[in-house]
């Protein structure tokens, strides 16, 4: 059983490292205001036709309910039924970068870097960049 646990742990460690490997090219160099570009693999691989960023969602908190323009009794109700077990999560954004469009504009420019974040809600990848879209 111990060997199995160690084996699984090693497997996760290796996969995690492999998935985040490319982020090491920029992770310790990037600074706020830098221009972020798409990895050039997007323009070589015919399987990749678009690149979709993500938005971060957070669970509704009592303080958020206070700012809602609803009646007081509705606020009390929402707070009484508040699910506090929710965790932040990433969902695909409403915008997409089409590879064809990037070729037309002759640029892989994605947006302006704002900061880093490490979120564990989307598989093994935990190196995320926060950015303002181009």
């Amino acid at each position: 059983a111990l060997a199995a646990v160690i084996g699984i742990g090693l497997f996760i460690f290796i996969i995690h490292g492999a998935l985040n490997q490319d982020s090491k090219l920029t992770w310790n160099k990037v600074k706020p205001g830098d221009r972020l570009y798409a990895y050039d693999g997007f323009f070589k691989d015919t399987i990749l036709t678009e690149f979709t960023p993500f938005r971060l969602l957070k669970p509704i908190a009592a303080s958020d309910i206070d700012t809602m323009k609803i009646q007081e009794w509705e606020k009390v109700k929402l707070k009484a039924q508040l699910d506090t077990s929710l965790k932040p999560q990433l969902v695909t954004a409403e915008i997409t970068y089409k590879v064809d469009s990037l070729f037309k504009s002759k640029s892989s420019f994605v947006g302006i870097y704002v900061g880093k974040d490490s979120i564990h809600e989307s598989g093994f990848i935990d190196h995320w960049y926060i950015f303002k879209p181009a």
Binding site: L36, F54, R55, Q89, V91, S108, G111, F131
Partner: peptide, 30 residues
């Protein structure tokens, strides 16, 4: 944007996998 019940947008920012980002223009466009 498909926001599940119980969640709200955390901020106005967008997120990308750091492995997909580069600090230089792709070679195809240089």
């Amino acid at each position: 944007l498909d926001i599940p019940k119980g969640y709200i947008l955390s901020n106005d920012n967008y997120y990308m996998d750091a492995s997909d980002a580069r600090l230089e223009e792709a070679p195809q466009f240089k």
